[in-house]
Simulated assay, not measured.
Amino acid sequence: MPPALPFIEYSNTFHHKSYPAISPTRPELSAAGKTVFISGGGRGLGTGIVAAFAQAGAKNIVIMGRNATSLQTVATTTETAWPSTKITIVTGDVSCEVDVARAFYEVKKVAPDGVDVVVANAGHLATVAPIPAAAPTAGHSSTEQTKLDPVLMDWWRAFEVNVKGVFLLARHFLASAMPSAVFLNVSAGACHLNPVLPGFSAYAGSKIATARVIETLQEENPAFRFYNVQPGVVKTDMLTNSGLLAIPDLPLDDRECFHRI
Results as ranks from 00 to 15, higher is better:
F173V: 01
V161C: 05
A75L: 02
E97M: 08
H259V: 05
A202K: 09
S30V: 00
H16L: 10
A202P: 06
Y105Q: 15
V115M: 03
L148M: 11
N194T: 14
T69S: 13
N121Y: 06
E79G: 03
A204G: 04
D253Q: 04
P3Y: 09
G42D: 07
S39R: 08
R260Q: 14
A133S: 13
R260I: 07
W82N: 09
L174Y: 07
N194M: 12
A101K: 14
F159R: 10
A101Y: 07
C191P: 04
F167N: 11
N221P: 05
V161K: 10
D154L: 06
G139H: 12
A58G: 07
G46L: 03
V94A: 05
A211D: 15
G114D: 00
G243T: 04
T240H: 11
L184Q: 09
I38F: 04
A190H: 02
L244W: 04
A204S: 14
Q230V: 13
G243Q: 06
A122P: 11
I261K: 14
L168D: 12
V36F: 01
P150L: 09
V234C: 10
A177Q: 01
P24E: 02
R225G: 11
A68G: 14
G205Y: 01
E256S: 15
N185C: 06
Y10T: 06
D154G: 03
N194H: 12
A138D: 15
A56G: 08
L184Y: 12
G33T: 08
L168A: 04
S23Q: 02
R260G: 03
T73A: 13
A211G: 11
S95E: 08
G123K: 03
H259N: 11
E219K: 12
V229L: 11
G189I: 15
L148N: 15
G40N: 04
F7Q: 13
V100Y: 09
F14R: 05
P112N: 07
N185P: 06
K109G: 00
A21S: 14
Q145Y: 05
S142Y: 04
K34E: 03
A103F: 01
F224T: 02
F224P: 01
S201H: 11
E219I: 10
S176C: 12
R260P: 13
G139Q: 10
V163R: 09
V151S: 02
S187F: 06
G243M: 08
G41M: 01
A75F: 03
P222H: 12
